[in-house]
Nucleic acid binder design. Sequence first.
DNA 1: AACCTACCCAACCGCTCGCTG
DNA 2: CCAGCGAGCGGTTGGGTAGGT
Length: 213
Amino acid sequence: MGGFDVEALSLMEGSSGVRKGAWSQLEDKLLRDCVHLYGEGKWHLVPQRAGLNRCRKSCRLRWLNYLKPNIKRGDFSEDEVDLMIRLHKLLGNRWSLIAGRLPGRTSNDVKNFWNTNLRRKVLSHNKENVKESETTRKTHQVIKPVPRVLPKASSLLQGKSMSSFKVGVGEAVSSSGSENWWETLLDEKEENINNSTCFPGGKVGAIELGRRT
DNA sequence: AACCTACCCAACCGCTCGCTG
DNA sequence: CCAGCGAGCGGTTGGGTAGGT
């Protein structure tokens, strides 16, 4: 890669005239300068301000997943993987929430890592569990997880600090008074994975956190 | 060396949510 | 209350590349 490929800037334009595809160094520089100058947010204004022929979404994603300072690159540590698995058990495919507990990691990173590395691992692990559970089904009633509904306006859902966050449902959680309530929740869930008081109703599905099902 | 396959990761797309007038 | 708009999210796609034959 030597120098900016100005010609490439005019290529790969969509039908709307907006450029698509990989970002050039020049585009990265323009976007970085723009965010430094105006700060994050107002993404609809960014293409104009930065002089980029990109859609707002593309700009935002590029910044969040690649250009933002303090983004951690490289392999996930064992601790991170362990935490990711536990959080995924708890939260399901809430990549942004999971990424929020992994400093320097983006939701895209987490999602990609999960899909390429962990999904298979977990699936095979689950298969083993299914085999095992089939042998014990006669004596143990299987109680499946039920959506845990959290307040929509909660800081958890907005990626804000957890320290001031109080969960609105599940007395066991809110009454714990723990700063790291979610860690408690992880332990609690592992311990009570088959406890109906923790997961009442036995409804099948991902854990509800407000936005999606 | 050439081809094929699987994998990784950046980027796009479509949808939902929250805010505002 | 409702429509319009911007922001954010998760699912999916596609290009690049490493490894195998």
